[in-house]
Design a protein around this nucleic acid. Structure first.
Lengths: 190, 190
DNA sequence: TCATCATGTTAGTTCTTACTAACATCATCT
DNA sequence: AGATGATGTTAGTAAGAACTAACATGATGA
């Protein structure tokens, strides 16, 4: 956090993701950013422009190469890594994701960016499961497994994100490794 | 759909769940409901009151008795039923759920109502897995399994709800039964 | 036929908010 | 020291939205 613009963008992301575009005022954003409302308009012209520039700025992409190279072709370990990476990307982008969910109608074009993560992970998973099938570790259809893994992983993420008050005693990390254990066993041969 | 109040409540739920509380105007709701704005205020006094009455009205509860009595103590079949029921409840309440997600700050008390479903299902699942463990079908901790099943099921639901444009070729029904298959195998003995 | 009741219409009030203009301040650089 | 540029302040405009009051209309039921 350094320049004025960054401060404003950060503040806007926090607030937009919490309350949604319309419910947040530029005054509020300025206050949260610690600048005057005038400064906000000088830098971004309009509220909507600020919204769009915020979306553009904060998309953290996963590092696929590093991930793919670290795989060991051991189902449980690999899936653990992949799931953790996915959770990590989702978590880093959580505010943007919430911002998108709360303001879908405002940024249809942005959907494409958001869906990039699941899609890229799906491709990665597809390749992985295909290879594992070739190696004789599993028999299921890779596509099916990939979709399954993605959607259920997303459930873990989202539950822990928005329903954290839900009195599930188990913490998220344990939850993930349990999930991977079950999933691995569920798709393994024998 | 019949009385004027119902028409207005229906319209408000549609719009609130699509755009969020603040972004929707009473004029818009009145138009969507096919009544005049004045009629809206005559019936509901204020926008916020309408919002709360909408929340109160549209909560579809699951029928636990029927569900519990139809269980056959066959893991895959039972989990299929339970998951379907859960998906059904979530789907019937999808607009309310979205409405809640988009307006969290407006209705903190309503969270309790929303979390009722997962919590009730969790209890049901707990009892079920405990019984199955007693019968020697599984060994895992029932609580762990329940949490896992719930969160991942929610992922299926939510993905199909808000990310339907995601180009997952598999349809939701197939997706569910694949998921149950994997999960069942993952938690079964041997 | 006449009273009642729900609804529509129109005009208006008040408040909030996005956004602007003009001027003040203050640090930095030459 | 003086110019520049970024920021703050204050006052204000214009538009929109929640909400009200008063009156009109039209169906129902005694």
């Amino acid at each position: 956090m350094c320049t004025t613009e960054e401060k404003i963008i950060n503040a806007s992301i926090v607030l937009f993701s919490q309350k949604g575009y319309t419910a947040v005022t530029t005054k509020e954003i300025a206050k949260e950013a610690g600048v005057s409302q005038m400064t906000l308009f000088r830098h971004f012209e309009s509220k909507h422009n600020l919204f769009e520039r915020s979306l553009d700025k904060f998309v953290f992409s996963p590092q696929f190469k590093a991930l793919f190279e670290s795989l060991e072709w051991d189902l449980e370990r690999d899936l653990n890594k992949i799931c953790s990476s996915y959770q990590d990307v989702l978590y880093k982008n959580r505010k943007i994701i919430l911002m998108h969910l709360k303001n879908e109608e405002l940024n249809p074009h942005f959907e494409a960016v958001l869906y990039k993560f699941p899609n890229e992970f799906k491709k990665l998973l597809n390749r992985y499961f295909e290879e594992m099938r070739n190696r004789g570790a599993i028999i299921e259809n890779p596509e099916t497994l990939a979709v399954n893994f993605l959607t259920t992983s997303f459930g873990l993420f989202f539950t822990s994100l928005v329903m954290n008050k839900l009195t599930f005693d188990t913490d998220i990390q344990t939850c993930i490794s349990n999930y991977i254990k079950i999933f691995t066993k569920g798709i393994s041969l024998l």
